[in-house]
Computed example of a mutant assay.
Amino acid sequence: MISLRTLLALGALLLSLPLGAQNPFLRPSLELGMSSANLRMTQSGSSGPLGGIQGLRAGAGLELSLGPLTYISAGLYYQQLGANNELSRRGSRPLELGAQGLTGTEQLRLQYLSIPVAVGMRLAVPFVGAGVSGELGLSYNSALGGSYSYRAASHSERSATADYDPYRLPEEQRPSLSLKERDLALHLAAKLELGSFFLRLGIEQGLTNIWQDAPRRSSLRTTTSWLSLGYTLF
């Protein structure tokens, strides 16, 4: 597996090349966009309703051409994920076991470093500089940090208010919401190019149950979609 240090060194080397030294086989790019993130929670065979959050997605990508139509893409992105949960809503299930039977609002905000690797196919329009492509692959996600907060709906439950980092929990604090720092997700994306600029629409579905010490038959998986504007450097 390629280490994060190797990827950063490769990106720095590519960005240091002069624009005149164009390489048709390697295409580095920068990207900035907004994402809509949520969590899929399953408990005892049923899914509880969760509300999504809006976040930021930004980073750099690199494409390696394999021929006229196909390429391999990889990238390094900062990604915000999470979910909102209204416990007063009918059929809602708490993210934290300690909030069982309470009413109020839970919010989970996560910060990830995402490294997607995908195979893409591009259809280009000759002499126009336009093209459309699709990508399929996997994304390795590593948590940079996060925050869980609970706000009670009534003054009588004020003592149940909580704020903590779900990745930095001591053993004695469980059964609070404790999350795994590593995640693997299915990566799907489509890209519309016009000259050096492009729009990318993507979605990632988490394959890992990120709920540490999850109750029996329970799981928590990430899901994210995004729209970003990118610029191909050369």
Rank of each mutant, 00 (worst) to 15 (best):
T70E: 02
V119K: 05
R151W: 02
F198V: 12
V132A: 15
R89G: 06
L26M: 08
Q43V: 14
G61F: 00
L199R: 09
L87F: 08
T161G: 02
G51L: 06
L138C: 03
P94L: 00
L186F: 11
G131V: 09
G45I: 05
L76S: 06
D183P: 01
Q100N: 08
V125W: 14
S159W: 08
W211I: 11
R57M: 05
E135T: 12
L87Y: 09
N209Q: 06
E157A: 15
R216F: 01
Y148I: 14
T105C: 00
R200L: 01
S159G: 01
P28T: 07
R57E: 10
D183E: 15
G120I: 10
L144E: 05
F127G: 01
E31D: 12
T223Y: 11
A189C: 02
A130R: 06
G206E: 05
L69W: 13
P28Y: 09
L30Q: 00
R182Q: 14
L50E: 11
A83E: 13
G230S: 06
V117R: 05
L229C: 06
Q100R: 11
T222E: 03
R93L: 14
L192W: 15
W211G: 10
A160N: 12
P166F: 13
S35A: 15
Y231E: 11
L4S: 12
P68R: 15
S73E: 08
V125H: 11
L184I: 09
E157M: 04
L19P: 01
T224A: 12
L4A: 13
N84S: 12
R158K: 07
D183I: 08
L26E: 04
G145A: 12
Y167C: 07
R5S: 14
G91K: 01
A83M: 14
G146E: 05
G120Q: 12
T6Y: 08
L7H: 05
A189R: 02
E106Q: 08
R151C: 01
R27E: 13
Y78D: 10
L76P: 00
N85R: 11
R90S: 15
A190Y: 06
T224N: 15
M1C: 03
G52C: 04
G101A: 10
D183S: 10
Y231V: 12
P116L: 02
L66I: 07
I210H: 11
R40T: 13
L113T: 06
N141C: 14
G82E: 04
K180C: 00
A74E: 01
